[in-house]
Design a binder for these strands. Sequence first.
DNA 1: ACCGATATGTTATGACATTACATGTGAATT
DNA 2: AATTCACATGTAATGTCATAACATATCGGT
Lengths: 133, 133
Amino acid sequence: MTASLPDLTKNQSLVFETLSQAGAPLSAYTILDQLREHGFRAPLQVYRALDKLLERGLIHRLESLNAFVACQHNHSHNHLGTTVFVICGTCGDVNELNDQVVSDQLMRRAVEENFRVESAMVELRGCCSGCQD
Amino acid sequence: MTASLPDLTKNQSLVFETLSQAGAPLSAYTILDQLREHGFRAPLQVYRALDKLLERGLIHRLESLNAFVACQHNHSHNHLGTTVFVICGTCGDVNELNDQVVSDQLMRRAVEENFRVESAMVELRGCCSGCQD
DNA sequence: ACCGATATGTTATGACATTACATGTGAATT
DNA sequence: AATTCACATGTAATGTCATAACATATCGGT
């Protein structure tokens, strides 16, 4: 499951492993702290790895948390469309939904406005099923 | 248009005016700098005002920019549903769309997951009509 | 062996946001 | 008028997130 992927560098693998095993969003500095025993010393070591992992779609950045999560989906398939992140403020759990209606409608509106979309962010914050009264 | 609203405090009015007149997203520290001549000295003076303005829906926070904008719409009506922010990375312009399909579908999915939504963020980054080649 | 591209290490700094505590201000009550 | 309470404000310090700039290492292809 969390086996390291080919052609990830050492730092990239370490960061990816950390995120995968956490199963929850981590800040760059939390990752840094967890990797100090592996020789990490500076934020940039983490941020550089994160950038590469983001490029490859192995992880996601949660803008509303300033944090990063490992992608839930298998990386065999490409991510078509926009991912909806559903984030529980109580337990910290994050779910990824790929909703065709939302994706299509966002793209439709962008086209209407003649806006060229480079990236899209959709995040729902709230309280998950398991955490409610 | 940018006339100060009733029962805004002095600091809240100043911050709101600054954002309204900018017509574009500003960071809290940019606002601070613009208000130094009015006696602002510390970030907290800005953040506190921003919090109140956010509560009242007079401004929005753009998560992907760590910045704030005055709401485009008139405040006479309530904001029902989720607002889609369309952000041009070239000219910095921000558009607010209120899309019923997107709002409804997001809420539908949340209900399906028994997720209680407290806040939603939808931001499209890219290049606007006026800024393309 | 050489070269170029990419990854890494390190220090310093910049940018964004909050904690903690003190003080002012104004409306409602006595 | 004095008291009280809620709220807004002032200020310093600190915490959190992210990048610039520069040096060194590693590795594949020629």
